[in-house]
Nucleic acid binder design. Sequence first.
DNA 1: ACCTGAACACCGTTCAAGT
DNA 2: ACCTGAACACCGTTCAAGT
Lengths: 199, 199
Amino acid sequence: MHTRTRRYHHGDLRAALLTRAEDTLREKGPAALSLRELARDLGVSHAAPSRHFKDKQALLDALALTGFERLTAVLGASRDGVGETFAERLDAMVRAYVGFARENAELLDLMYSIKHDPEASDALREAEQRWSDLVVRLIGEGQAQGQVREGPMERVGLPVFATLHGYADLAVAGMLPPEADEHGLDDVIAFILRGSAPA
Amino acid sequence: MHTRTRRYHHGDLRAALLTRAEDTLREKGPAALSLRELARDLGVSHAAPSRHFKDKQALLDALALTGFERLTAVLGASRDGVGETFAERLDAMVRAYVGFARENAELLDLMYSIKHDPEASDALREAEQRWSDLVVRLIGEGQAQGQVREGPMERVGLPVFATLHGYADLAVAGMLPPEADEHGLDDVIAFILRGSAPA
DNA sequence: ACCTGAACACCGTTCAAGT
DNA sequence: ACCTGAACACCGTTCAAGT
């Protein structure tokens, strides 16, 4: 039973740092996130995090990456068993994304924030694409069923993705008008269906 | 000619701080923005900014506010003389917004970032609404011309606004696929027109 | 391999004091 | 009214040294 033994160094400091960082990001916002405080919370020295993240931005990038991975996992799984029609599956995906955005507002803000480090942004762009590809794939399936207009999946899918992301981003920023609570999502979904309907 | 006289204190330190803050935000990103460095750049003591902004977040909020005001001014002015049809005017507005977003990427990021201070966010929400109202008004005019589907302007306009904001936000975050450069904007505009066309 | 402890050069914020 | 200068409690990052 040496798993309960308090060892000199942390078991998986990297993962612990990410988990703790997400908690404080959610609770206190990005400005309050400090490497030294994370280290203090986890009972390691303030220099320990540098073994796992070369600087603070690297930790934030890694956190954004886990966000995209979780989002892809959750929305990929939610594709199963939500009905057959394109409208039903689109409805489910839009609501799932907006739900994720609202529940992880600070994280989503970070995921779609500007990266001034161009090297780190490559991995993030790839992770983001794995998620947006779920929407593109949905478009492809809709086309196969004749429920979505013809054309290259990526081109047909991009305005759809922009719409649902835009709505989620406005929700996260707290910029949706009060009336949106009632009809906002319904209106957005109907709008997407009209915009992507067969000609 | 005492305007050229170097006075003991700054002429309009508040405005100078905002201008300089926007420059460094654009050039070095939000993480590199420090009150002390701003003060140094402007030749005042590091405590001087606190006379005009109670803390760093207050300066960032004020900066975001000027962003919304400039956006509203620019897009409000660009409404004049761009053609008569709804399609033409929508096209102009979408391109103008995406253009503003690309030219002021870091600022737009700030404008739509989460505010953890709920009191400061009221003013920002109002400023944001003055800009999004331009889109709603455009919808209203389109309805009057019979070129936009019926319904409450705000409800018809919100999915339209979400779409163009979502596209701009993806562009700013560097998350648009490479192919979007060619057809992205055209596809988004056509998508919006289909989604808001009369039934 | 992984972490510590000290050191360095920075921060944001506050506050008495100056003009 | 507006700003200074000193002070306080923090930061991020680096690096020799420890285990």
